[in-house]
Design a protein around this nucleic acid. Structure first.
Lengths: 143, 143
DNA sequence: TTATTAAAACACCAAAAGGTCTTTTAATAT
DNA sequence: ATATTAAAAGACCTTTTGGTGTTTTAATAA
């Protein structure tokens, strides 16, 4: 579905938010271990998320990653869009730029409801809502 | 949705089948032009499809690509699977190997119906059915 | 004020995806 | 037979993705 960077980013963000709910500010080593993603790559991705403004961080002792609680909840779609663009949830199955309701590819009509469902899913679910679900147990973030 | 190779392959296959319905056996140059894909890359992809047994070809004068009409219709899923595996229509949104009904990621339940719909779509539609639709007009294969 | 800690910055590397081009082989029409 | 045509084979090349590692900077606790 999504590329590796997006997958690690989503899992990492949900994990950080989950820890924040517990009053903890995790660092790169902890996040990478818990979401079972490559250590250095996870660090790079978290830092990119900070630069993109999705996440905050502090250096030094007691440092780590956390969310600005004054900001609104973060929809998955916003993160996906920022990392890999809209190719996953928009765009034609045949790769045609002109494909649309007026000028459809042979799959367009059948694909439209699926695309709409994906859009809805990643537009409505947020890092916060998923962290909340995760906290209640029954879901996993690693392996 | 799909990667470039898959997109060009699907468009190319549908175009070849469409031409076959008209009693014509197109070559690389014609296919690449009509589906508006890179010439040499299209050639490479069509040749791969021949090696994979999805398509037939003859060299020399009057040569080109065509389908073995004694074979059953070719579902898109078979082509997609052969080129890029099942990552697009199977697998977890969070990239977790263990994710499933027993051990779900936070998105699993919501994603399940979408994956099922994609599976159905590419499992039911075939190169032949799309070529038939294309022949009736109203759909495009290029741009 | 100086160790210590942890993120930021940056350099680098490997594999895969996407794409181009030339040479070889096979079919066919003359 | 041979010229012509068109696919097959294969050698490269570029960009993107995925990943690793070291050095620098900033925060804090002692």
């Amino acid at each position: 579905m999504f590329n590796k960077e997006t997958e690690y980013a989503l899992r990492g963000l949900v994990y950080v938010q989950f820890q924040q709910m517990l009053g903890h500010k995790p660092g790169i080593v902890e996040v990478a271990r818990e979401i079972e993603a490559p250590l250095f790559y996870t660090g790079k991705i978290l830092q990119r998320l900070v630069k993109m403004g999705f996440l905050m961080s502090t250096k030094g002792k007691g440092g780590g990653f956390y969310f600005d609680t004054t900001k609104p909840d973060l929809p998955l779609k916003t993160v996906v869009q920022a990392i890999e663009g809209d190719k996953t949830y928009a765009g034609c199955g045949f790769g045609l730029k002109e494909c649309g309701d007026e000028n459809p590819c042979p799959l367009h009509e059948q694909f439209a409801p699926i695309r709409a469902a994906i859009n809805k899913l990643i537009g409505q679910n947020t890092v916060q809502s998923l962290a909340h679900d995760f906290r209640k147990g029954g879901t996993i973030l690693g392996l």
